[in-house]
Amino acid sequence: MSKPKKLIFKNGKRVLVDFDEVSRSEYDKQYNRRRAVEKPDYLKFYHSTQWQKVRAEAMTRDLDLCVRCGNKGYLVDHIVPSEDDWSNRYDVDNLETLCKKCHQLKTKREWTKRHKGVQRAMKVHVISGYPGSGMASYVASKVDTSHDLVFDYDLLMSSLNGNLIESIYSDNDNQSNNQDKLSNIKSRLHQSNVDIYEYVELIYEMILRKLRTERTFNNVWILRTFPDERLKNLLVTTGYDVEYLRLDTTREECTRRLKTVGRYTDSMSTTMDKIDRLDDEGLFDDYKLIKTKKRKK
């Protein structure tokens, strides 16, 4: 005997399905009924005037488009789920417009991470130093590539402006120890593009939002030339184990290194001047000085 059928709406059309099949709309109704009992604050929040106002603000900002795929956006979602950070539920900077498909994929990833992911005792390392001080090399010697997160401004800039790709594939026919070629590669890796700066900052701001509730990594390494009050204020409230490190490579040594690879410019000198000024103002007082090996000249 065949199963009885029922008529439901599926993808905007009326279709016959097996009687025991649960449709999306039925699932949503069951989910909302369960949430009304278990989490009544959620329903009050999503029906509040304040939420409707901030939701409309986010959709206007995103031009009613899904920020992930560019298709028509229908839903406004919390980047850091409100379940993880309830106090941040009205922050428009923590909202993004999504289409239904992208929202479903994000929700699935969040569920998997919450229910099947590993919670780790995460430590945050904030690394600072003069340009050319060797911050990336220091982190590379410490990082666990399987369970660590690294934010390196220079490397991210290089990947977005194409210099990283160019460096990997240039001189592909002669991967020798030719010092001139290595110097050229290092120089390209640190070329900046002012048009891309905004995108690097957006990624950094996204990391800051996620760090509010993150427990997935063993270590998070953040390479910052200058102290950042936003980061410092955030880390004070998260309860993470945090250390601030500063490489002891001198300004004179960093200048020599930068000139060797053709990276020393007026802007580098200005950056170093700012670091010295912030140091005089005591903004590096919380940083532990790390001794680095001196390179042979």
Rank of each mutant, 00 (worst) to 15 (best):
Y199S: 07
S87R: 05
F45E: 03
E201F: 00
I185D: 08
R109F: 09
S159V: 12
C69R: 10
D266E: 14
N172C: 13
E83Y: 02
F217K: 05
R114D: 14
Y169L: 12
C254Q: 06
N233H: 03
G239Q: 13
P40W: 02
R14S: 06
M1P: 09
R61Y: 08
D148N: 08
S176T: 15
V92S: 03
K29D: 03
F9M: 08
N219H: 10
N11E: 13
D84A: 10
D228E: 06
Q104P: 02
Q191G: 07
R224T: 00
N161K: 01
G129T: 14
A136D: 09
T216D: 01
D228M: 01
C69I: 11
R14E: 15
L202I: 14
R295Q: 14
A36T: 06
E214P: 08
V22L: 12
L156G: 00
I185S: 11
K232C: 01
V80N: 03
D241E: 15
D28T: 07
G134K: 13
N178I: 14
D241M: 07
K113V: 11
I185L: 10
V242K: 05
S146G: 04
I196D: 00
S267V: 08
G262D: 04
K72F: 13
S128D: 07
F9A: 05
L245V: 11
Y197H: 15
K297G: 07
F19V: 09
K123E: 15
V236H: 09
K116C: 12
N218V: 08
Y197P: 00
L231H: 00
V67G: 05
D148Q: 06
L235A: 11
V194P: 11
S133M: 13
S192G: 10
R68T: 07
E205Q: 13
C66I: 03
M122K: 06
Q104F: 10
G117M: 07
A58R: 03
Y31S: 00
L160R: 05
R114M: 11
T237L: 07
Y90N: 00
L283E: 01
A36E: 11
L211A: 02
I165W: 08
K123M: 13
K108V: 05
K288G: 10
S146Q: 15
R209G: 05
D285A: 14
N219D: 10
Q119I: 15
K293A: 13
H125T: 06
T255Q: 09
